[in-house]
């Protein structure tokens, strides 16, 4: 699972930022999962449930809630026991943690919201093999104290939930004319049934990834433009003399 340890993780873990308070570090940890490394649009993993359950927004929300619970729980447990777990058996141990939390989530869903649980069906138990959870346990929780592990799990879980809701909104609105069951499209709207099926899921995913990439590119270009701007009239930064600031 070393593939799931990103460069950002290594840098973030080792970073010493004496100016930043503990809370600021934790906040950064949360934000990383929600935006910079969110899945499945940036860190392109965990597609399967994202495509399968997002035929309705409420399914995405329930799935996301379960993932947050499992992620946070597993990260905390792994972090708590990080010095006790022998390296050779770490994967089985992580998996037992994950499976336990997933089973608890499954039971709670079945007891509290049986309708939603029925629709999610097999995909709740499948959270066990969701890449994000084992990935974060291996790449992060095993190397950081409990509070940072908690923050990381929260961030990634929230990021995943937001992504599921985004896909769900597109698919439910176009495929059924509703969002969360409320009819939003005008009466004459003919539903795009393809949206409720796998091709529609892939199309939606592709579009959103494209939008994210576009957003990143524009942000980067803006940053470059800002950096090329001279700081003061008498000291142009790296620009040739006479070149106008753009």
């Amino acid at each position: 699972m070393e593939c799931c340890t990103t460069e950002m993780d290594k840098r973030a873990q080792g970073a010493r930022r004496p100016a930043a308070s503990r809370w600021q570090t934790l906040w950064q940890d949360i934000l990383r999962g929600v935006w910079t490394e969110s899945s499945p649009f940036r860190l392109m993993i965990a597609f399967c449930p994202a495509l399968a359950v997002t035929t309705a927004v409420v399914n995405g929300l329930a799935m996301g809630a379960a993932v947050i619970f499992v992620l946070v729980g597993t990260n905390v447990m792994v972090s708590l026991m990080r010095r006790q777990i022998p390296r050779e058996v770490r994967i089985p141990v992580y998996t037992i943690f994950i499976a336990t939390f997933v089973t608890i989530a499954d039971l709670v869903l079945a007891a509290t919201v049986p309708n939603v649980h029925q629709v999610l069906g097999l995909f709740v138990p499948l959270i066990v093999v969701n890449c994000i959870i084992l990935g974060r346990a291996e790449a992060w929780a095993a190397h950081v104290p409990v509070d940072r592990a908690f923050a990381d799990g929260l961030g990634y879980g929230i990021g995943y939930t937001i992504s599921l809701v985004m896909i769900g909104i597109v698919r439910e609105l176009l495929g059924n004319g509703t969002i969360l069951g409320l009819r939003l499209m005008p009466d004459g709207f003919v539903t795009w049934q393809v949206m409720l099926q796998p091709p529609g899921a892939f199309l939606t995913m592709g579009m959103i990834v494209g939008l994210f990439n576009l957003g990143s590119r524009l942000a980067r270009e803006r940053q470059l433009r800002m950096a090329a701007r001279p700081r003061s009239p008498s000291a142009p930064l790296g620009a040739a003399p006479g070149a106008s600031a753009s």
Binding site: V93, I96, T103, I104, L107
Partner: peptide, 20 residues
């Protein structure tokens, strides 16, 4: 470690199951 973790997990799950 494996035995401990498994037993713990089993116990917790048994508890949740009988409750829910």
């Amino acid at each position: 470690v494996l035995a401990l973790v498994s037993t713990l997990s089993g116990g917790v799950l048994a508890g949740f199951y009988s409750w829910l």
